[in-house]
Every structure is written in structure tokens, then in C-alpha cells.
Design a binder for these strands. Structure first.
Lengths: 227, 227
DNA sequence: CCAAAAGTGTTGTTCGTACACCCATGT
DNA sequence: ACATGGGTGTACGAACAACACTTTTGG
């Protein structure tokens, strides 16, 4: 069997929405190369693991396994990165994975959620992996129900709308959005309870429904804020 | 650097449309494992190559480098496959790549274009890679101009429509299709020449335009032929 | 003349956008 | 009472589906 040998790693683009901002989980590297640079969380694929196993394991350890149990987050493969010089230690292929999670408590240790717009100069080629992950997330909100993966188990239509607005950096008419999502069969399941304590009319609470596709898709307009 | 070492290969899903059928390029294996089984063309990533380099090299060698020059085909990364037992020889990660090409002359040696519907029992996990590639191609025709990658340099609207019909296994109204594609700016560029010799009114010839996205997308209806 | 394929016009319907308007709560 | 946010009704326009119709060739 010809061909060189590679170390194979999984790097995670873990996205969440915090205070109406799209944020990514980063860890500060404690070792060379790129010591003390921010990087995406990740790790090497072990002997009996498939790629998805590694991604799920890393996600659980980086965010706390207990919270991960209760969370109906989303995890999917993104792309493979294997430029010959991407890691000075040798030939490393990294599979990017994209995770969408509800807002979690601040992680332990040298990790933090930072707004994606403030992030530059990550270790290795992680700037590109992050950009690919963000673009994938933006595109998938258009034609899937994945926006609900950013919300807790029960949420309002406004919560969901603020997810779209944060990820796309745009504004959406609340009234048309309401009709759009509530009229898509299987997207949102109303619960018995309502929210109290806020200003204005108490909103209906919803749970995620079984639908995964959005027909017809949500339309994303050209961003009003270019860069 | 912990983690096991992998051989890294690239496997190609090369699709084309022949006689109104979506076809895939397969090679008959001449060695073990899976000797004499059909498999996707592929090969190992060499020392100084990035993944895309390997994919382009394999595509050129498998289809003939000369033809590849003239062809404005499409090549994109598909997904990574690394199940621990996917190759009995050891740990191999394979990056799937998707290529869309115009109809080419029959390849040399133990290779052939076969209709995707007739293909089962490929070597390794290539059935799954093929299924992922076909689904990606079907989805991308909806919202991109990639259907033109299946056509030669100059083609008619009917040629393009037959591509959609073959890939989606559906029928499209020729009149509405005509308006749809000719009214999308940058999709089709008319040429001076027309076709002669066929029955009926000679059609206009077009070249591919610079547009890549299709707004609004082409609508794919539920397949009339389920499986 | 007739068949066949290319291409245009027209009509009804669906769906998004914009916005007027009502509902239910806290202060 | 009034501000605030939740939620509904409606009018206008863009785009698609269906199909009648014209154009231009070969036989």
C-alpha cells in the first residue's frame, strides 16, 4: 500500500448564539506550535474510532459531558484539510466538524466562547475552517430547521428569530417570520406553558418538531453590513 | 503527537450524462482486496500533494489528460470516510471528491461509465460514497448553475434540460424551463451559431456564463419513480 | 402539407413583503 | 392609560405551472 502516512485529527467549529451574537468555542493552546494562540478544539482520532466518534467525544469533553446529554445539539462533518505544510510537526489531515449548540455555561479552563467577528489569527489553518463552518451554518439555516439547534429545549418564536438575525446579521420582520415558521408543518410544536414576567403579551413556548427541511426555504437577503 | 497513523486516499465520484442517463466512472479492481469488483477510481495522497491536487491528478489520469484540458468540468470535495474496518489492509481514510463532466469517449482499460441505478456492490464503502455524491449533485442542481458542467462547451437549452431530467429522473416542461434559464442573468451566453440538421426549428447555441448561483432556485419535485 | 422541436404570450395561483391592526401583559 | 412585545389580516407584486399559440426546419 503506497502513500505516506498521516496523523488524522478532528477540529470542531462549535457555534452558539450568546447575547444576539454568533460565538465560537476556542481554546488557548498550552503547547507548541502556536503556543498561547487561540485554536479550535480538537484531537486525534483513536484506534477504534470513526471520525464522528472522535468529534462527539471531543465535543463532550470540551463542553462538559453532563450538559451534552440534555442538549439536542447538532453535529455534522464539514470538510477535510490536508495542506502539506499546515502543521509544522508533520503530515496531519484534519476533519472539520460543525456543532450547533444552545447557549452553555462558560467552559472550564483555557476555553471561551468568542464572537466570530472578533476572531482572527487562529492557530494552523483554523481561520479557514472557522470561515467554512460559519458559511455552512448560514447556508443551512436557509433550507433546514437547524436554527432550533441553537435554542434550548423550549423557546419562543422571538428566540428563534433572534438566532436567524444573529447568524445572518440581518433584521427580519417579526410578523412575517412568525407566520412562516408556525405554518411549516413539523417545525415547531406548541407546549402548554407560556412565559410570564416579561413586558408585553406572554409568548407561546415551542419545542422542536420532527421536520428537518424547510420548504420553501427562508430567504436570506444581502447582508446590510458587508464586512 | 499522539494518535494512530492513517493512509490517506482520494476516491472520485465522476458523474456524466450519457444517453439521458446519469452515469458514474468505475474501474474494475485488479488486485486484492475486492479483486475484480467494481470500485470508484482513486489513489493515495502523495508527499507534496494537497487533497485537491490528488483529486485533480487522479481525474486527469483516469479520464485522459488531453480531454481534461479542454473540459470546463467541476471538481469539489465531498466528505471524509474513515470507519476503522473500511479497508482490511489497515487504517485508511478516504476523501471523497465529486466531479461533473461532459460526456467523454469511453475510458481505456478496466474502466467504464455505468448508469448509477445499475450500480451495487462496489468495493469497500464505495456504495455509500457514490450515494453521497449523487445526492450532492442532485441537490446542487437546484440552486447552482452546475448542470452546465455536464454539457460540452456549446449546448442548447434542450441539452441542459435533458441533464436536469436525467439527474433528477423527472420531466420538466420545456417551455417554462426555457424561460427560467434564459432569464437568469449570467447563466447562458448565446453564441452566433445555430444548430442545423435536426428536425424542427434550429435551436440557439449557448456557452456557460459567469453566474454560479441560481436565484430563485430550480424546483425539484418529488421523484415520480421512487426506487 | 405535416410533424417536430424551438420559442413566446397569457392566465390563474401561490407565496413573500410590507404594513395596518388587534391582543395581553407590566408599570 | 400607555408602552411593549406577541400575534393576525390583507393588499400588492414576483415567480411558477399550465397551456394556447407562433416560428422554423426536415420529410
Amino acid at each position: 500500500m503506497r502513500g505516506n502516512l498521516f496523523a488524522v485529527a478532528v477540529d470542531l467549529v462549535v457555534l452558539t448564539v450568546r447575547r444576539d451574537q454568533l460565538c465560537v468555542l476556542l481554546v488557548r493552546r498550552g503547547e507548541r506550535p502556536y503556543e498561547s494562540h487561540w485554536s479550535l478544539p480538537g484531537g486525534f482520532v483513536q484506534a477504534d474510532e470513526d471520525l464522528g466518534d472522535t468529534a462527539a467525544r471531543e465535543l463532550a469533553t470540551q463542553t462538559g459531558a453532563a450538559t451534552q446529554d440534555a442538549v439536542q445539539g447538532h453535529l455534522e462533518q464539514l470538510a477535510g484539510y490536508a495542506a502539506p505544510d499546515r502543521d509544522p510537526r508533520g503530515r496531519v489531515l484534519s476533519m472539520g466538524y460543525l456543532a450547533l449548540l444552545p447557549d452553555l455555561p462558560d467552559p472550564q479552563g483555557a476555553a471561551a466562547f468568542l464572537p466570530v467577528e472578533d476572531v482572527y489569527g487562529l492557530a494552523f489553518d483554523h481561520d479557514r475552517i472557522l470561515a467554512d463552518g460559519v458559511e455552512r451554518a448560514r447556508a443551512k439555516l436557509e433550507y433546514t430547521t437547524l436554527a432550533a439547534a441553537f435554542c434550548p429545549a423550549e423557546f419562543t418564536v422571538s428566540d428563534l428569530r433572534r438566532v436567524y438575525e444573529a447568524v445572518w446579521r440581518t433584521e427580519i420582520d417579526p410578523r412575517n417570520f412568525q407566520r412562516k415558521v408556525t405554518s411549516t408543518p413539523g417545525f415547531l410544536i406548541p407546549t402548554a406553558t407560556r412565559v410570564t414576567g416579561g413586558r408585553g403579551r406572554p409568548p407561546q413556548l415551542f419545542r422542536r418538531g420532527p421536520a428537518t427541511a424547510l420548504h420553501p426555504p427562508m430567504l436570506r437577503e444581502p447582508l446590510p453590513v458587508p464586512v
